[in-house]
Design a protein around this nucleic acid. Structure first.
Lengths: 194, 194
DNA sequence: CGTCCAATGTTAGTCACTAACATTCGGTTG
DNA sequence: CAACCGAATGTTAGTGACTAACATTGGACG
């Protein structure tokens, strides 16, 4: 029972390939025609597949572009900061340390995706919606026993906002690493940083 | 020609009444059934009107709840701050002054609306989308001649994020004025404020 | 080689939203 | 006051994102 499905590699791979094909064609079409002008039917057709199949692989049209690989790690990084710092500083420094350890992404695809998002209002809004859960996680990580809940939520929101702006700016500018842009964005919140 | 339409009061009033009826019934339905579970057809029916008429008065379903009366004033307030302050301080202080002069809103309706928004992810996202233009306006107001553009954008984003959190917190808490909540939210960004 | 299940297809429907055209209703004007 | 005109609303038909129920294929495994 435990090992039964080990050999069954191909069907899984097939689904993954379809998924990737969909994502690639989607990105291409979005970039050439614009996100809203592109129809799910078009993407599906380009990938040689039905509309239905598209929605089997991605719950929404947005989901083809939106992958948040970092979100889970962030809150953990913040918890590691000492509790005696004010919430905003804990958030900023926690984020900084987290991203310092993360590897730079495969610049090609990620940058195309982020740039598309940065230029498409609906997608930016979708990112915000996704960030809501991360924001809550950060706020929880910040909220000490007798801590000001409002301050925690503001700090969380503000740090994520800065991070997002840095990310978008990086995607547009083509010179400079993600790390640099994030660092510059966070520095605005903590100017007195050695 | 200039004065011709002065007497034509009733048709305009009629449209306004319809609009208000739609908004009221929409809010009621949203609060009882939830935003997404409520259909535009239901709202229209409740207001004794066709779906089509709904969309004549509100461009989208979201628009019934989203009215941003403050957005235009904000950037102007920031421009009044001296240019030698760092962008984040200009933004925070500009906002603070702007809201200090603004009247407290009719607490009833506004609070219901904001609370609904705060609790509905799609609506929060929509607010963010709306804020994009305000954010650009603030960023422009902050960007001095040789100023750091990234810092300006981060400051704008961050200040709006704080403001929004304050607004949502106010809508949920029922004790305390809007001004207090906004002040507490902004204070997180500028702890060393006399 | 036939079985089984993942992967995909088909059909039919809901809901937000758009466009083109038809209608009502009330105040203005002759 | 009656014909008129335009704002306000209705009707119809369609698109696009998404869902649900059911049918089909195709390849790995026994």
């Amino acid at each position: 029972m435990l090992v039964t499905n080990i050999g069954r590699v191909t069907p899984i791979r097939k689904a993954e390939r379809t998924r990737e094909r969909l994502a690639e064609h989607a990105l291409d079409l979005f970039e050439t025609q614009g996100y809203e002008a592109t129809t799910v039917a078009q993407i599906a057709a380009a990938a040689g597949v039905t509309e239905m199949t598209f929605f089997r692989h991605f719950r929404t049209k947005e989901a083809v572009v939106l992958t948040d690989p970092y979100d889970p790690v962030i809150a953990a990084g913040i918890r590691r900061r000492p509790l005696d710092e004010p919430p905003l500083h804990r958030a900023v420094r926690g984020l900084r340390e987290t991203f310092a350890q993360l590897p730079e992404p495969d610049v090609d695809m990620v940058r195309r995706r982020v740039r598309l998002i940065a230029r498409t209002p609906v997608l930016r809004a979708a990112v915000t919606r996704h960030n809501d859960v991360t924001e809550s996680a950060i706020a929880d990580a910040l909220a000490g026993p007798e801590e000001d809940a409002l301050a925690a939520r503001v700090s969380a929101a503000v740090v994520l906002a800065a991070l997002t702006v840095g990310l978008y700016a990086w995607a547009e500018h083509a010179e400079g690493s993600l790390g640099e842009f994030i660092e510059r964005a966070l520095a605005v919140l903590e100017p007195d940083h050695a």
